[in-house]
């Protein structure tokens, strides 16, 4: 049985009497422990889809089942790593993570267990050294690592990543991608990631979901990436499967579903 089941999801926004359909008939099944990337041009509604899964937006049509239960509100079982980290600037790194841990495990773990759990997750992303720093005292990559720690600490059934590395420089991004792969290998989380970076999608994903352009965007094609894990970016540069997958995604994005403005 499917772990995360997105069926017939569509969403429309109406503003000033005009209704615009952003997503239509989105169907996607994600298995437990799978790493799925959603890629598409800007404005195709991929972030909207992630927000629907997170419960931050309500779908106009269709529905989502996670582990057999319907999703209709936000919750810690679908933790989100936000694109701009969304750490609370008045709390230290440790407090940001423990805000989540204390809330999610208030009845289930003792105070000392929660403290240890916060530190375990900060250690997982190598941020224990900056635990007492505030977000504006650490770099962008570090903030994103804390955001990942906060999300992981909720022990979500599915981890939602909304362009998690989009605002980072290329070197930091590669470093964080490796860390996320390592965490995925170690913990076996189910992950759903929004990205607009083809290499990132191919490197990290088990499957790549390619979205058509909006309005009324939907899933155009799903590509399975048959690369053994652990994956090392240097080994993959000339790997035939990698090159082929990369070409397929590029072909989808820039030949078959190029943005009208770019095609002209």
């Amino acid at each position: 049985m499917a772990y995360l089941d997105i069926s017939q999801v569509g969403i429309s926004f109406s503003r000033g009497g005009r209704t615009s359909e952003v997503l239509r008939d989105v169907n996607l099944v994600v298995e437990k422990g799978e790493y799925v990337s959603i890629i598409g041009h800007s404005g195709c509604g991929k972030s909207t889809l992630l927000n629907i899964v997170a419960g931050l937006l309500r779908a106009s049509t269709g529905g989502i089942l996670l582990d057999g239960r319907e999703v209709n509100a936000p919750g810690p079982d679908r933790a989100v790593v936000f694109q701009n980290h969304s750490l609370l600037p008045w709390l230290t790194v440790r407090e940001n993570v423990s805000l989540a841990v204390d809330k999610v495990f208030s009845g289930k773990k003792s105070r000392t267990e929660r403290k240890a759990w916060v530190e375990e997750n900060l250690t997982l992303v190598n941020m224990m050294h900056a635990a007492e720093k505030r977000p504006n005292e650490i770099s962008g990559g570090m903030k994103q690592r804390v955001g990942i720690a906060r999300a992981l600490a909720m022990e979500p059934k599915v981890l939602l990543l909304d362009e998690p590395f989009g605002a980072l420089d290329a070197l930091t991004r590669a470093h964080l991608q490796d860390q996320v792969m390592e965490i995925h290998a170690r913990l076996g989380n189910t992950m759903m990631m929004i990205t607009h970076d083809v290499d990132e999608a191919v490197l990290l994903s088990d499957r790549i979901v390619m979205m058509t352009n909006g309005p009324s965007a939907t899933i155009g094609e799903i590509l399975k990436v048959d690369l053994a894990r652990p994956r090392r970016r240097l080994d993959l540069v000339e790997d035939a499967t990698y090159v082929h997958a990369r070409a397929a995604v590029l072909e989808f994005l820039y030949a078959r579903h190029a943005l009208p403005a770019l095609a002209a």
Partner: peptide, 14 residues
Amino acid sequence: IPQDYRNVAAVLRL
């Protein structure tokens, strides 16, 4: 209040 903080609060079910 930035929407991001509201989203964090919503996910945590504060």
